[in-house]
Design a protein around this nucleic acid. Structure first.
Lengths: 225, 225
DNA sequence: AGAAAAACATGACAATTATCATAGTTTAAA
DNA sequence: TTTAAACTATGATAATTGTCATGTTTTTCT
């Protein structure tokens, strides 16, 4: 009952370079897993025996800190591969993966992935390009953290969520994140995130309905100082 | 007159997985370049036609910011490959590379590198593992920036420089960095870096002689709060 | 629908970090 | 060796961000 050929993920990541036969082998050993909002897919310092491909929903990659306030390093939406880095470098995980909402994941054993890396040149190069891209993004985030204010970072987080995960017909962000989530992404205290979002509201840059957020002035938000 | 076989860099990066023949081809098209302290190897948003391998000296990868204060993303010592990411992802550079002291670089055209990636599975996988490693480090830096104080980050920068580039027989750091350099690495104002280094001195964690720095109490420095 | 829990909001204050100013030191170049 | 330039040092003050406390609103669960 393998349907890897039609899987959305195949359109979105390195899997698209696999041949029909390779894909059939992946399908043969994959498993579909479901996690509810808040459930932990894996923790820090774990050995992974495979990678997870996000088929539905969003996961957050987080790092716990001493004071209990964790930092969200990145959000993984549809088609993203989780655990790829750890499997490739054969190290333990250094981040946890947590379901941000209800998610459906496709689990592929690492031997299958590594096997394809060794045997399929195109797949291997595609994974390489993906990692290079991830690296660029990580360095970009690092620079943002170093050079921009909390206010700027929060504005960017909003536009990022809008662009990456889209908006409903009435203009609200598709993804519901709590203020605490935003604080964790931006790297600030929850109260600071709340305060700044309140400012954005007063300035008319965004509006809210409950915890739903709507970006009113994208251009201005992108130019926040 | 190719001496790639003996090159120090061959011990330290993916080049070590190349066959004798491949290495000979690399040697045939490589060029050795020299840059004096402060000279720019390449700037931001440039297209690279090859990668640079550090044979002697240290380069810093920096990102310019609006206010003129740039951020040092990483230091590249002996054996590190500069520009690898941009060449692999076929994007423009997003960082500049600047000589931190006098450096000797080995330039290898990108076709040579990409060719080896396509043809030598072991080389390709090694590059993959290197990128995965770089990614882990970048994410680690991001988390440090988000979760730690300037004081903690500066303490880490000192131990990092000590571990990575070593010390002279009399215990001073091999690499001479200005306070401004440290500030740029840590992501803070130069005055703040100066102030905190002064504190470290008062606390006996380090001592200085001119701009040379000696770590006196490594353990305590690693545990700075 | 109603109660409990979670999330949001905001004030007051503290801590950290940045900025500006000014002076002393070290380094490097003439 | 002298002299300018660069770097280091430190105080005073401002700006940003974090913490604690408290009350309100929204969501969730029964």
């Amino acid at each position: 009952m393998s349907r890897c050929e039609q899987c959305i993920a195949r359109q979105l990541n390195s899997m698209k370079t696999l041949t029909k036969e390779e894909l059939r082998d992946v399908a043969a050993c994959k498993r579909t897993l479901y996690f509810k909002k808040g459930e932990v897919i894996f923790g820090e310092n774990e050995l992974l025996s495979g990678v997870y491909c996000v088929r539905e929903g969003i996961c957050k990659m987080i790092k716990l800190s001493a004071n209990g306030k964790d930092h969200t390093v990145k959000l993984m939406g549809k088609g993203k591969l989780i655990g790829q880095r750890s499997v490739i470098s054969e190290e333990r995980t250094h981040l946890s993966a947590v379901a941000l909402n209800d998610v459906e994941l496709c689990y592929v054993p690492k031997d299958q992935i590594l096997g394809n890396i060794k045997s399929n040149q195109e797949f291997s190069f595609n994974v390489l390009q993906n990692l290079a891209q991830d690296l660029r993004e990580a360095e970009g985030d690092l620079i943002n953290m170093a050079q921009k204010s909390v206010r700027q970072r929060l504005a960017e987080a909003l536009t990022y969520v809008s662009k990456t995960f889209g908006e409903t017909e009435d203009g609200y962000l598709n993804v519901k994140l709590s203020r605490e989530d935003y604080a964790s992404i931006v790297g600030t205290a929850t109260e600071s995130a709340i305060r700044i979002l309140s400012q954005f509201k007063k300035e008319g840059l965004i509006s809210t309905s409950g915890k739903r957020i709507k970006i009113e002035k994208l251009k201005e938000l992108e130019r926040v100082e």
